[in-house]
Each structure stands twice: as structure tokens, then as C-alpha cells.
């Protein structure tokens, strides 16, 4: 922002007011109490004879823990990819003129949002045993066009990705739908009047503008997903938490290993914060001056009066 040259260069500038500021004793009291509580908690942790803090340092960069971190990141990316891709499809289906697609989408969201993720993960994991043979896609009661050995296809990792991703899709569908609804109807009308089809309007006009609304909750979902991947430990996926569990079940340094896992989760979520900031900036183009750029005469309310 360019400052007003006249204001800074003016020689007869008035003296700035020097007044005694209002005292805030409440802030000092609050700070004292909180420091006291924090200090006593830290003190209790340090003097605890069971606290082998060197264990945290030892395991922080242990190769198996690092492999767990990598798998946690991979699970997060894969599940979010499934969730976002399917979520967009479901959101578009929901707003489709085709009643079959619209109600299918509604039922999907109802079903997958209604079941706990842990239950879904267990379902996908044990479904392999349930079928125990091959499952194929083909004419019902007729010849199969395509089939897979379920046991081979559904490993614990794919069960985790399916469970987490398909559940996420239900939530992403609602987020994307909210984003699409947030775009002004006039945009669709303008695009259609230029001869764009519904698909073109969606891809080039509505969805890019919806991104601004879609990204913050999606960042939130990604951070949530990073933590939900720890549920995969129940089906023995060797992600971060499961690796930590494996160690403390042998050496009984439970809290220390949980702290190792927690520190890694915090590091990863912090990285996601940064990524979200840049994404929001990228998709905020053309909206940064919305309030400044709108003059009173341009607002619909004034125009209609």
C-alpha cells in the first residue's frame, strides 16, 4: 500500500498522544496460573523414575518408525485421492438432472456416512474371507466378464484404503456440493448463454470457483484423514501407530513410544497447514478485493431499489 505522501511529509504534524495505558491485571494473573500448572506437569514428567526420555530420542528416527511414517503418509494420500475423486463424482451426480444418478448418490452418502469408519475398515478386511473365492463383474447369473481373487486383491492396506477412502467420499461429496451451490447462479447462466454445455460449465466455470469454498474443509478432512489412518492398526497395517504399538508391546515403554508417534503426527499435520495456505492462495485469485472493489452502486440491493 502506498502511504499518503502529504500526511508523512507535512511539517506541522500534530504531536502524538502520550497517555498512561489501561492496566490489565487479569492477563498477568492468568499467565501466572498457567505457567504454574504447566511447570508442575513438566516437573512431574521429568522427575518420574519410569520416564526413560532417551527412549523417545532413540525411536524417533528408528527405521521401522520412519517406514511407518511413510506408510501413514501414503495411506492418507491414497485414501484422500479416492475420497476426493469419488466425492466430486457423487456431488455432480447429486445435482444431475438424471433422477437415477441423483438418488444413487443420496443413498451412497446416507449409507457410508451412517457407518463408523472402523466398522467399514473391518468390513473390507474380512470380506476377503467371506467370499474366499473369486468375485467378478459380469452378467448376473451369467458369464463373468472380469474377476479377481478376493484374498489376493484385498490386502490389509487395500482394505484400509477402501474403508477410509469410500467413507471419505461421502463427506467430500457434501463438501463439493456445498461449494457448487455457493457459486452464483448468474455464472451458470452466463456460461450457458455463451453456448457452453453443462459439463463445460462445470469444469471451467463452476468447479474452479467452488474450489475456494471446497479447499478449507478439504484441508480439514486431510488432517483428519492423517489421524484416521491410525485405525488401520486394528487390521495390522504397519503404519505409524501400529509400528509404535509393536515396539511397546515388547519393551513396555508405552508412553515414550506414543509420544514418538504423537510428535510425528504433529509434524505431518503442521506440514499440511502450510500446504493448505498455498492452495487457498492459489484458488483465491480474483476474489481478494471483493469487498474493496464493490461500490455501493453495484450492489444488487441498491440497484433494485
Amino acid at each position: 500500500m502506498a502511504s499518503n505522501p502529504e500526511a508523512t511529509a507535512a511539517p506541522g504534524r500534530p504531536d502524538e498522544i502520550r497517555a498512561v495505558p489501561v492496566r490489565h491485571p487479569g492477563r498477568w494473573i492468568a499467565a501466572a496460573i498457567i505457567i504454574l500448572v504447566a511447570a508442575s506437569v513438566i516437573h512431574a514428567l521429568i522427575i518420574n523414575p519410569n520416564a526413560h526420555w532417551y527412549v523417545v530420542g532413540e525411536y524417533m528416527f528408528n527405521s521401522e518408525i520412519l517406514a511407518g511414517v511413510v506408510l501413514t503418509v501414503e495411506l492418507t494420500i491414497a485414501s484422500m485421492a479416492v475420497g476426493i475423486a469419488l466425492g466430486v463424482v457423487l456431488a455432480v451426480m447429486r445435482s444431475s438432472a438424471n433422477p437415477v444418478l441423483a438418488s444413487t448418490s443420496w443413498i451412497y452418502v446416507w449409507l457410508f456416512r451412517g457407518l463408523p469408519v472402523l466398522v467399514q475398515i473391518l468390513f473390507w478386511y474380512f470380506i476377503a474371507d467371506f467370499f474366499s473365492k473369486r468375485v467378478g463383474i459380469g452378467v448376473p447369473f451369467g458369464p463373468a466378464l472380469f474377476h479377481v481373487e478376493v484374498n489376493r486383491a484385498v490386502t490389509p492396506i487395500t482394505a484400509a484404503i477402501l474403508g477410509l477412502g469410500l467413507n471419505e467420499a461421502a463427506y467430500m461429496a457434501e463438501i463439493v456440493r456445498a461449494g457448487l451451490i455457493s457459486v452464483d447462479e448468474g455464472q451458470t447462466m452466463a456460461a450457458q448463454s455463451l453456448g457452453m454445455t453443462r459439463g463445460q460449465t462445470l469444469r471451467k466455470i463452476t468447479l474452479p470457483q467452488a474450489m475456494r469454498v471446497i479447499i478449507p474443509p478439504t484441508g480439514n478432512e486431510t488432517i483428519g484423514m492423517l489421524k484416521y489412518t491410525s485405525l488401520a492398526s486394528v487390521i495390522a497395517v504397519r503404519e505409524l501407530l501400529h509400528t509404535a504399538e509393536n515396539f511397546y508391546s515388547k519393551n513396555f515403554e508405552t508412553i515414550q513410544l506414543l509420544i514418538v508417534a504423537s510428535l510425528w503426527y504433529l509434524i505431518l499435520t503442521s506440514i499440511l497447514y502450510v500446504g493448505q495456505y498455498f492452495l487457498e492462495r492459489r484458488f483465491g485469485r480474483g476474489t481478494t478485493r471483493v469487498n474493496l472493489g464493490q461500490k455501493p452502486g453495484q450492489t444488487p440491493a441498491v440497484a433494485a431499489a
Binding site: G186, M189, A190, A191, Q192, L194, G195, K204, G286, T287
Partner: peptide
Amino acid sequence: ARKRAEIGMVFQHFNLFPHMTALGNVTCA
């Protein structure tokens, strides 16, 4: 859509695409 492409329309509230530059708006369709 093909028929609409032959008819231009200008709206009361402009309805420009806010995520595109002026030139982007004009070249998009």
C-alpha cells in the same frame, strides 16, 4: 448449446467469471 452460442447475452449484474482476467473472460468461450 450450439444455438445459444449464436446469441449473445449481457446481464444486469455483468456475471463476469471472477476467476479469469478480462481477456480470459473474452477468450474462454
